[in-house]
Design a protein around this nucleic acid. Structure first.
Length: 865
RNA sequence: GGGUGGUUAGCUCAGUGGUAGAGCGCCUCGUUUACACCGAGGAUGUCGGGGGUUCGAAACCCUCACCGCCCA
């Protein structure tokens, strides 16, 4: 009866996904129009590293963003999801350097210019693998706006903000202790350092020669003693008070260093006296500043000892540690030694090398005013953090932020736009400035996060007053993992508020968690529990992966992921496929007006009511970023209400035909139509395929989002169908207990259907439970929902099974009655509980009492075995 | 050390005051024309321990224990 193409008997994701994505791109559905009169809805993608490939965390992050974007697009917003990548300074440089190393070359062999050229070549050939993988996932991003942090216009934005910050005295150059990675040979910011507990040593060392003043310090880094400028004690420590101000001789370097008093020293720690190595420890540096202690650098940039004029020069820092301890021990200067000693040590987040704190001249951002503004924007509600529980973490960090070291000793990145004149002049050049002749540019580049912090507006054309910027800034929501709250989110807040005259970069920060393995353990290469989203998509389809991830996404919390769950989501997709096939076979349609609601039978009223409730709740949950809850509702509506009940209940009606069948065809068409719309953001491929097949329309991508109308709900139909469900379930249970095969037909008589208002359902019920309406010898019965069903089992009733069944029911009813009875007999409850609760308990008591009577008499009526 | 989240079925997790839930797994039965990537039925919990508030606590308060994350 329909001209639509027949759906394949089985759903094969690979058959449709690529085709549909291509269709969407060609049709330009994902392109946002800055001239549109529709209200904007903007998300900028957290730019993945150009070196990266799609991991399961991206899959989650992108799925959630795509859900929001697709929903808003369907709701009539001008939806822009802006894709792009990050140049990932250190990571990318490492990749290319590794390639060079394979040919026995270093970047210095090529020189700066050629090396950078090489990196661009690498990007053109191998970079951006993730972009194609995003297409697999179905990301509805606007590819025409794809951005890269090193693009000309984005680089332009970097120069602009640098200049503005510099002019506002928010960027400065200073000699400070920074985190130095001796492998990457660059400075790192605090958050690029991971602190890990490792086994080290803690040793007591005596300074000063015999016969002179001596003092014992304790340290985990004996080799740095060569750079000590003082020994510090707590001013209130009676053990050392008399020594404050005296000088002791530092072994091997033979320098006289003072004993100073500083509150920072914890008398309980070690010997209560600590060495002060100003150039190699941030705390020591602070003390040194307060007490004018000299700062002695004792290592070169490779963390090899240098310039100490001792036998240790030329040794790697860890070799030097052993050698220094050995020498000290020989010289009788070692007291106690604790080894292994667990303590926290900073590691380079890029290459895991132990970071060396190092005195070095670098560029910094003065964060105080910027961070204050970033904190206030959340404090005063202009920016919402979802879930709210994560905002203390944001405040804690942003309110205590240290100045940000932004210079990196790399070649890949935005070169610092500062030029030095022959006489030490410093000139900062904006995008349109030309440096004075003879000036030399600073060799360093900027921290990658410096440019990604501009992402929400540099990608929209800033600093130009572009149409995009006017239409799509501020962005609507930022969706990202809580793990980069500090790296990226906080910095976008600072830059956005500064550059955009106080307008925040996004209205809402929606944070999600990390994807973990099926036991909730963190995925890691060493544990071997890392999963590949591409593999899952190949095996189960993108929709299945997306639905699984969305279904597990409770705001801000991690989720466990197992292959079985994805298989389950694939099964769900198949279920939907088959439900649509069933609808097609039975002439479901979306053409013409829906029959008048009041004219429909209860089953149709019921499914429409349930649909309306589901649409309303799903809508609300998605607006609140409650993806897991939204998916859960969809899953149960589609599987339980629609497939398990509605489709089953309609079968007899379709078999009979007539006007009831016609109504049902239209209602079924409508319900599927709306359900597919509702599911499209989560499962875009299969819903597109099924919906176009069902409706004959071109695309679901731009179809209207379902509306809901609580006035079109019918509570009575809910109650009626609940009764029908009880009856069916009870008969099935009886049949099951009696060992009657599902396919076997049984003669049964239904009593009291009319009185219960269920007469019109008898046929449907009989159809489902295979009970024929014929005369018989009715030897057993089931009572449920106020009706009685008698069965002719040809005398072959299993009395034992029946007794067991009834006994079990009796026990349950007695237990229920008892809990109700206890409450009713409780004076406090009767006096204080709200009326409706009391009413409910009373009803329960009455119901269970009746149940008990009924079951007891049924048991008594059972013949002896 | 500071902050913060958690402890509910075998596993992973929902559940913010009124008879404990889901998915997966498990047991039994079943190929009845949408679907075996399925259907029907079933089993499974001192809701971490202890105390308190309340007519009523998985939920609120206190306390202890254990696990996790962030920051130092």
């Amino acid at each position: 009866m329909s001209t639509r193409p027949e759906l394949a008997a089985a759903f094969t994701p690979a058959d449709i996904e690529g085709v549909l994505y291509k269709k969407w791109i060609e049709a330009g559905y994902f392109k946002a129009d800055a001239k549109s009169s529709k209200p904007p809805f903007t998300i900028v993608i957290p730019p993945p590293n150009v070196t990266g490939s799609l991991h399961i965390g991206h899959a989650l992050d992108h799925t959630l963003q795509d859900i929001l974007i697709r929903m808003k697009r369907m709701k009539g917003f001008e939806a822009l999801w802006l894709p792009g990548m990050d140049h990932a300074g250190i990571a990318t440089q490492n990749v290319v350097e590794k390639q060079l190393a394979a040919q026995g070359l270093s970047r210095h062999d090529l020189g700066r210019e050629d090396f950078v050229k090489k990196v661009w070549e690498w990007k053109a050939e191998s970079g951006g693998a993730i972009l194609d993988q995003m297409k697999r996932l179905g990301d509805s991003v606007d590819w025409s706006r794809e951005a890269f942090t090193m693009d000309a216009n984005l680089s332009h934005a970097v120069l602009e903000i640098f200049k503005r910050l510099y002019d506002a005295d928010l960027i400065y150059r200073a000699e400070r202790i920074i985190n130095w990675c001796p492998r990457c040979l660059t400075a790192l910011s605090d958050i690029e350092v991971d602190h890990k507990d490792i086994e080290g040593e803690f040793v007591q060392i005596t300074y000063g020669d015999a016969g002179e003043d001596q003092i014992s310090i304790a340290t985990t880094r004996p080799e740095t003693m060569l750079g000590d400028g003082a020994v510090a004690v707590n001013p209130d420590d009676d053990r050392y008070k008399h020594m404050i101000g005296k000088l002791v001789k530092l072994p091997y370097v033979n320098r006289m260093i003072p004993i100073i008093a500083d509150e920072l020293v914890d008398p309980e720690f070690g010997t209560g006296a600590v060495k002060v190595t100003a150039a190699h420890d941030p705390n020591d540096f602070e003390m040194a500043m307060r007490h004018n202690v000299p700062m002695v650098i004792i290592m070169n940039e490779n963390a090899v000892m240098a310039g100490t004029n001792t036998q240790f020069d030329g040794m790697d820092r860890f070799d030097a540690r052993r050698a220094v301890v050995e020498q000290l021990r020989k010289d009788g200067r070692i007291g106690w030694e604790k080894r292994p000693y667990m303590h926290s040590v900073g590691h380079c987040s890029r290459c895991d090398t132990i970071v060396e704190p190092r005195l070095s001249k670098q560029w910094f951002v003065k964060v105080a005013p910027l961070a204050k503004a970033a904190g206030d924007a959340v404090r005063d509600g202009r920016v919402k953090i979802e879930p709210e529980e994560l905002s203390p973490r944001y405040f804690e960090w942003i309110d205590n932020m240290h100045d940000w070291c932004i210079s990196r000793q790399l070649w890949w990145g935005h070169r610092i736009p500062v030029y030095y004149g022959p006489n030490g002049e410093v000139v900062v050049c904006g995008p349109n400035d030309t440096p004075p002749a003879g000036y030399e540019q600073d060799p360093d580049v900027l921290d990658t996060w410096f440019s990604s912090a501009l992402w929400p507006f540099s990608t929209l054309g800033w600093p130009a007053q572009s149409e995009d910027l006017a239409k799509f800034y501020p962005t609507s929501v930022l969706v990202t993992g809580y793990d980069i709250l500090f790296f990226w989110v906080a910095r976008m807040m600072m830059w956005g508020l500064f550059a955009m005259d106080g307008v925040q970069p996004f209205h809402t920060i929606a944070l999600h968690g990390l994807v973990r393995d099926k036991f909730g353990k963190k995925m890691s290469k060493s544990k071997g529990n890392v999963v590949d989203p591409i593999e899952f998509m190949d095996k189960y389809g993108s929709d299945a992966l997306r639905f699984t991830l969305a279904r597990g996404a409770n705001p801000g919390s991690d989720q466990a992921l197992a292959e079985e769950w994805i298989a389950g989501a694939r099964n769900f997709a198949t279920k939907l496929w088959n439900a649509t096939r069933f609808a097609n076979m039975n002439g479901a349609t979306t053409q013409g007006d829906l029959p008048e609601f009041d004219s429909l039978d209860d089953v149709n009223k019921w499914i429409l009511t349930r649909l309306d409730e589901t649409v309303a709740d799903v809508d609300q949950y998605l607006e609140k970023f409650e993806f897991a809850k939204a998916c859960e509702l969809i899953y149960h509506f589609a599987w339980d209400d629609l497939c398990d009940w509605y489709l089953e209940l309609t079968k007899s009606s379709f078999a009979k035909g007539g006007s009831a069948a016609t109504d049902t065809q239209r209602v079924l068409g409508h319900v599927l139509d709306q359900l597919l719309r509702l599911m499209h953001p989560m499962m875009p491929f299969i819903t597109e395929e099924l919906w176009c097949n069902l409706t004959g329309e071109e695309t679901l991508v731009t179809a209207a989002w379902p509306k809901f109308d609580p006035s079109k709900r019918d509570e009575a139909s809910i109650a009626a169908v609940a009764k029908v469900q009880d009856i069916v379930t009870e008969i099935r249970r009886f049949r099951n207990d009696q060992g009657i095969k599902t396919s076997a037909r049984v003669i049964a008589r239904f009593n009291g259907m009319k009185e219960a208002g269920l007469a019109s359902y008898e046929d449907a019920i009989r159809f489902i439970v295979r009970c024929d309406n014929e005369d018989g010898n009715f030897t057993s019965k089931v009572e449920v929902a106020g009706i009685t069903v008698e069965f002719d089992l040809s005398g072959a009733i299993d009395i034992k099974a029946e007794r067991a069944r009834l006994t079990k029911d009796l026990a349950a009813a007695e237990k229920d009655r008892n809990t109700a009875k206890v409450k009713i007999e409780n004076e406090g409850f009767m006096a204080k509980a709200p009326m409706e609760v009391v009413q409910e308990i009373r009803q329960r008591l009455a119901d269970t009492t009746a149940d008990i009577e009924r079951i007891t008499s049924a048991l008594a009526a059972l013949p002896a075995e």
